[in-house]
Design a protein around this nucleic acid. Structure first.
Lengths: 336, 336
DNA sequence: AGTGACGATTAAGTTCTTCTAAACCGTCGC
DNA sequence: GCGACGGTTTAGAAGAACTTAATCGTCACT
């Protein structure tokens, strides 16, 4: 049947070009350079043995042949798009979300009711899988059984890593900083906690999720950035999970290094404080990962835009935090 | 509109696979390895976020989603194929053929009436352009103004070269040998012409078309292959065109080195003889070159199959020639 | 059961297509 | 005339696709 198809990429270029009657605009739409479009069109003309555009000085003009084939090409692409839509549509209704436990419980879960109110028609199923950075921080998400195509459903995953998930649509949603947090009761006149050096006399709580993936442990990094060189960064209790580390801090068991967005609510509520306002950026970030074709499903699109809005709202509130960070840097200087 | 299309190559693989329900057979149809198909399908499944085939042990089974999208995909490809057809159809009726002068006049022209009889509805226009080997024997045919897409017409060109014409459909039609030919009156008892060494006392006619493109001139090559080392290969008249060289030979002006198919008729008619039956293969061949989309136009297809049939008929007649060639090799041994 | 055949998959390496960058060309407007 | 603009061309770089070869899992045959 279709064992002899035209060069499809070139047809796509042709269609775009025909709409704009401009190589430059078509190139923009296709996210390539005009040179690339020019070559595609030329290849198509060679394939057909006839010219599709008459190159005038300022504008382009389609030839009769070009005009003749355009409608069927549009129809063809339309069919293909519909086909994709058809397949994806079979699994609408519920929305499966998978996220690392820390993000799920400390960030997403508290906000989900808001989404449910905005979209009562969508049934959300939230799951969380191991709270690890993707292996080496850059591998694909393909061994991720949650995204396994065999389970046909609308699905979205949130991952903490370097954002390299080939074949999927990837959107960075948070580039978190790490800040020290502890119970407001931890610091006492006897054991103050105001400058990095003070940490030497406090318990450091470790989150092994972060530590495992880097040459330098989280506290070692923070301490060296903060200029507190003399402190043993490795002592203290270790937890295999960020949630546990934060909870230990809430309990007054020491000072934990936490991703700011995951503890923002606790800080606002006064359950946690930031004893030393110095932040180090995390080498990883949170990414929203989903199959390309899912991006246009209504429930998925709704969730994605809701999520992005929520993040934006957070950012607006944390704009204060930017000032805090600058402050932190000056403290660092005095602290050294 | 179509700014977000699925991976089209993968869709094509899917369509083929769905028809055969086998990676192996689909791979054969697409002229790739099963591994390639497997990867394409997997990419499509990742894109969609759902699986298209259930991999059973011996057979494949389509999933509901796969079955759902198949008809529209077929329809889409069908549309695209029709679009191509539509454009190509605008220039039906006449058939433009372009060939090197030597091939056009000595091989094609005498046979064209046969084609006209078989296809009276097709109006043929034959032209010939410079009788040169394509630059360096391997460049593209794109600077060939005859194939320029700007002239919208059914067109086919025949070229003598190495068969490298990217973007076009290429079919080798003749891989000619070069043989010495001369007038039957040339050899006399005083100046015999039976073994390679005898050529030392005869005029060598040169065709510069061939010579220009090779490190060794045609006669130099032939003489060294035939084992006649002591003869000056460069003396004698030179012609810029194979037709002129052959005509000089017909006139009894000397011995020319000619492509066998171009002089076969003259030999059969006794106007030329092959004094020494030793042939060397030409490093180039005749190729039929045409735009991919033209291959399915009725008039073009008719001409191509007629041409191929004619060649095949020649070959059958020249099967005698193969024996002659073996004979030539034995003569070579005696000749040295 | 064990073994071999077969088809599908995976990983790694290579090839080849496709894109970009940078120069060029021709036309228009100033 | 000169610069701006859009399209084309070229070589080279980046990336995608394919191939090879090894592996897996199931079936058929002994």
């Amino acid at each position: 049947m279709s064992y002899r198809l035209p060069p499809l990429a070139a047809l796509r270029a042709f269609e775009s070009e025909a709409r704009h009657l401009s190589f430059k605009k078509a190139a923009e739409e296709l996210n390539v350079t005009p040179a690339a479009v020019s070559q595609q069109i030329k290849a198509l003309e060679t394939y057909l043995g006839l010219s599709l555009f008459r190159r005038l000085t300022r504008a382009l003009e389609m030839t009769a042949q070009g005009r003749a084939m355009l409608p069927k090409i549009r129809e063809g692409f339309e069919c293909l798009a519909v086909a994709i839509e058809t397949a994806a549509k079979t699994c609408d209704g519920v929305l499966n979300i998978n996220a690392p436990p820390s993000f799920a419980s400390r960030w997403l879960l508290p906000r989900l009711p808001g989404f449910a109110v905005a979209h009562p028609e969508i049934e959300v199923r939230l799951s969380s899988s191991a709270d690890t950075v993707d292996r080496r921080g850059e591998t694909s998400v393909s061994e991720d059984e949650f995204l396994d195509p065999r389970s046909a459903a609308n699905k979205v995953v949130i991952r903490y890593g370097k954002g390299h998930y080939p074949g999927y649509r990837v959107e960075q949603i948070l580039a978190p900083e790490r800040i020290p947090v502890c119970s407001p009761l931890l610091a006492t006149p006897q054991r103050p906690l105001a400058k990095p050096a003070d940490l030497g006399r406090h318990v450091l709580i470790h989150d092994e999720t972060i530590d495992a993936e880097e040459h330098l442990s989280g506290w070692a990094q923070w301490l060296s950035s903060a200029g507190a060189g003399g402190i043993d960064a490795e002592r203290g209790p270790r937890f295999s999970n960020a949630v546990l580390a934060v909870e230990a801090a809430l309990n007054g068991q020491g000072v934990a290094l936490a991703l700011r967005p995951l503890v923002a609510a606790d800080i606002a509520a006064g359950r946690l404080i930031v004893p030393i306002d110095f932040a180090v950026p995390s080498p990883y970030a949170y990414y929203l990962v989903l199959p390309e074709a899912m991006a246009r499903r209504p429930s998925v699109a709704a969730f994605c835009s809701w999520l992005i809005d929520e993040i934006a709202r957070d950012d607006r509130q944390t704009t204060v935090g930017a000032g805090v960070k600058a402050d932190g840097i000056s403290r660092r200087r005095t602290g050294v």
